[in-house]
Design a protein around this nucleic acid. Structure first.
Length: 461
RNA sequence: GGCCCCGUCGUCUAGUGGACUAGGACGCAGCCCUCUCAAGGCUGAGACCGCGGGUUCGAAUCCCGCCGGGGCUACCA
């Protein structure tokens, strides 16, 4: 039998901002799909009526597009297995639930949340592992109308292949009957996900490790339905926060993908960093383009343990990408962060700026003196006189970094002053800051009249 | 509580019985360069390989126990 064409998917839930873990999972899926010349689908798992919002779905698209993690099939693009939004596939889940009901593989459950909670507490009190009592299977109440559909777990053992961990085996005797259809008529994740994966002919399920223990639940459903199981699974190590817990939307703001765009991380750099979190090439190389990753990525070099997210390393990788970027491209990417400046000015700043940024937003701190008048620094008489000398030397100089630098060096030579003594008061007067780009750039980026005015302001008449 | 996954410098990791005096990267420290800040170059500190038992001539690497962390155990996904 020939290997079927690879089909993979990601299935994010629109329950808040786009999550870093979604990007990570999308990356691994895409890498695998592209290297096997397969298809990458985006499915929106919006079965939680309480928490889903259409605007959150838009956020997911925006974030993935920003990272160039493009999908072949999805709610916005369509595809042979449309619709790709679970809320539009509810009839399908209902039909499958009815079939399971008819075949005696599922049953209606009329228990209330309170009753179930009581069962659970009782089990805990008696220190025995909790499993649903099957009350509604053996002795269903006759006076109730609202019900959920519960799967009758067949028991036995569930075995499957994980591309990272090898053969996995779970004892299904330990799994209690679980809900397929909620009483609001919507499916649970445990039900909708395997049904869709089967219907959409997903061949490899690549997702976060949090789903490892969910896999036997889903496989039992696939089996009960008589569908073909995916060829293999891959459960990727979780991205952990500084505190060692799984990155959560509520507790960890760094899980918000849009944050990275706002701060000026390059999509290439984020991808690069994400790839290295949990996977390594086995060589000393640290900087990778997507195409390189596509060539060398493999699941057998994926880590088994969760990886802690580290800003420092991301910053370094981002800096590497910034420094490697050609000036014109960098200027273009800088534009949104420097909306007060025109393209030509940004372009002139780039050579000096390049080695000083870890992220694009850093440019503001270096350049805001160009549109903001700094406060007059407190200078002593000596400093004022040095500025006076600089003004003299600069008067007739063409306003470009090179000639400015030579003019100032001339002053240094003639007076025997140190560069530090001469440049510091200039820097202070021009920018109001102790740190700036090299002094000749700091001067040249400012229109000459403004620069001279600011300098002369510091010199007592 | 039960089940599952995992445990090498602060962090990401290399390592699959001898080449390990445990390697690299980020970060950190020092020096060089230098007008500030970076970048760059060089040097350095930093891991008794979670702990305890085995197996073996020999273990970070194999086995067992314990401890620790994470995940799942929802009418969340």
């Amino acid at each position: 039998m020939p290997e079927p064409t690879v089909r993979v998917r990601i299935a994010p839930s629109p329950t808040g901002f786009a999550h870093l873990g979604t990007a990570s999972t999308a990356l691994y899926n895409l890498l695998f799909a592209r290297q096997r010349e397969g298809t990458f689908a985006l499915r929106i798992d919006d079965t939680d009526l309480e928490r889903n919002r259409p605007e959150y779905e838009a956020l997911i698209y925006e974030a993935l597009r920003w990272l160039s993690l493009d999908w072949d099939e999805g709610p916005d693009k369509g595809g042979p297995y449309a619709p790709y939004r679970q809320s539009e596939r509810v009839d399908l889940y209902r039909q499958h639930a009815v079939r399971l009901l008819d075949e005696g593989k599922a049953y209606k459950c009329y228990c209330t949340q309170e009753e179930l909670e009581a069962e659970r507490r009782q089990a805990q009190f008696e220190k025995r592992p909790y499993k649903y009592s099957r009350r509604c299977l053996t002795n269903p109440p006759t006076d109730r109308g609202v019900f959920a559909v519960r799967f009758k777990v067949p028991g036995g053992s569930v075995v499957f292949t994980d591309m990272i961990r090898g053969e996995m085996a779970f004892d299904a005797e330990l799994i209690g009957d679980f809900i397929l259809m909620k009483s609001d008529g919507f499916p649970t994740y445990q039900f909708a996900s395997p049904v869709d994966d089967a219907l959409m002919k997903i061949t490899h399920v690549i997702r976060g490790e949090e789903h490892l223990s969910n896999t036997p639940y889903q496989l039992m459903i696939v089996d009960a339905l008589g569908y073909e199981r995916p060829i293999a699974y891959a459960h990727m190590p979780l991205i952990l926060a500084k505190d060692g817990a799984k990155l959560s939307k509520r507790k960890h703001p760094e899980s918000n993908l849009m944050l990275y765009r706002e701060q000026g991380y390059l999509p290439e750099a984020l991808i690069n960093y994400l790839a290295l979190l949990g996977w390594n090439p086995g060589t000393a190389q640290e900087i990778f383009t997507f195409e390189e990753l596509m060539r060398i990525f493999s699941f057998d070099r994926v880590q088994h343990a969760g990886a802690r997210f580290d800003w420092e390393k991301l910053n370094w990788i981002n800096g590497e990408w910034i420094r490697a970027m050609v000036d014109g491209e960098l200027a273009k990417r800088l534009q949104p962060f420097l909306s007060n400046l025109d393209e030509a000015t940004i372009m002139r700043a780039v050579p000096a700026l390049k080695t000083r940024m870890t992220k694009l937003a850093d440019a503001t701190e270096y350049l805001d003196y160009l549109w903001k008048e700094p406060d007059m620094p407190a200078l002593d008489a000596e400093q004022a006189s040095r500025i006076d000398m600089a003004v003299d030397a600069l008067k007739e100089v063409p306003w470009e970094p090179e000639p400015i630098e030579h003019a100032l060096e001339g002053v240094v030579e003639r007076t025997g002053l140190s560069k530090n003594k001469l440049y510091t008061p200039i820097r202070l007067t021009l920018t109001g800051k102790k740190v700036s780009l090299p002094i000749h750039y700091t001067l040249a980026l400012l229109p000459k009249e403004i620069a001279m005015t600011r300098l002369m302001r510091a010199v007592p008449a």
